[in-house]
């Protein structure tokens, strides 16, 4: 076994890989945002909607949190064409990740909503706030303050999860690693470099999110 590591062969590809990071970030941010919107709606439905709505949300969460995201995307990308529904790889992954994230985010947000105290709502009522004002000034700030650590964690997991987009041919960070690997055959160098990039990016994301949530919600999130 005489294998000599040649990271030098990878360095020219660094800008190409960093371009992939942008796509990974786009995927994770878009699906996180979409998941948040869905999750918030589901969480409210679950807590305040009727029995049928609540049952639907419970079923949705159970299904999406107990099946692999990869196979969910397989169904969307390879299965739906059987019914004439076609997506580009990027869209299929984005939809899959969004639906999957909605499952986990519903749970996080539901727990957060449940922790908004009745007194706070009473106080809002005595202040004659409208429902929308209450939501904006009382419920949402509280919700984000208490759920920020869990949301941050979820985002980081999703950022790592974007790597499976490579399987569908999306040229994000991992996809570009596959490309470089098949032209240079420097597998160990390529994949360890990419691993390092994921480590750095998620570390930066953790720190930025912690600083952001301290600033925006005065949430006590440890920076590391």
């Amino acid at each position: 076994m005489h294998y000599v590591l040649h990271y030098g062969q990878i360095t020219p590809y660094i800008p190409y890989l960093l371009g992939g990071v942008l796509i990974s970030l786009a995927l994770s941010i878009l699906s996180f945002a979409g998941g948040m919107v869905l999750g918030l709606v589901f969480a409210i439905l679950r807590n305040e909607g009727g029995a049928a709505a609540s049952r639907f949300v419970r079923g949705y969460v159970a299904f999406f949190t107990n099946t692999p995201q990869l196979v969910q995307i397989y169904v969307i990308y390879f299965g739906l064409p059987d019914f004439g529904i076609l997506f580009t790889p990027f869209m299929a992954v984005l939809i899959g990740m969004t639906l999957n994230a909605a499952g986990y985010l519903t749970e996080i947000l539901r727990a957060g909503l449940a922790s908004v105290h009745a007194q706070e709502l009473d106080a809002a009522e005595t202040l004659n706030m409208s429902r929308l004002q209450t939501l904006r000034h009382v419920i949402l700030p509280h919700l984000f303050r208490v759920t920020m650590p869990a949301l941050t964690n979820q985002y980081i997991l999703m950022m790592l999860g974007t790597s499976m987009a490579a399987i569908f041919g999306v040229e994000e960070l991992t996809g570009r690693a596959f490309n470089i690997n098949s032209t240079t055959f420097r597998s160990i160098e390529v994949f360890t470099t990419v691993a390092a990039i994921y480590v750095v990016v998620t570390f930066l994301a953790t720190i930025l999110l912690a600083l952001f949530s301290r600033w925006a919600f005065r949430a006590r999130v440890p920076v590391i």
């Binding site: 980081i156 790592l160 999860g161 974007t162 790597s163 499976m164 490579a166 399987i167 991992t174 690693a177 596959f178 690997n181 597998s187 160990i188 994949f191 360890t192 990419v194 691993a195 994921y198 480590v199 998620t202 570390f203």
Partner: peptide
């Protein structure tokens, strides 16, 4: 902080 897929492929 490394995706499982990347570890696996490494």
């Amino acid at each position: 902080r490394i995706p499982f897929l990347v570890t696996l492929m490494t």
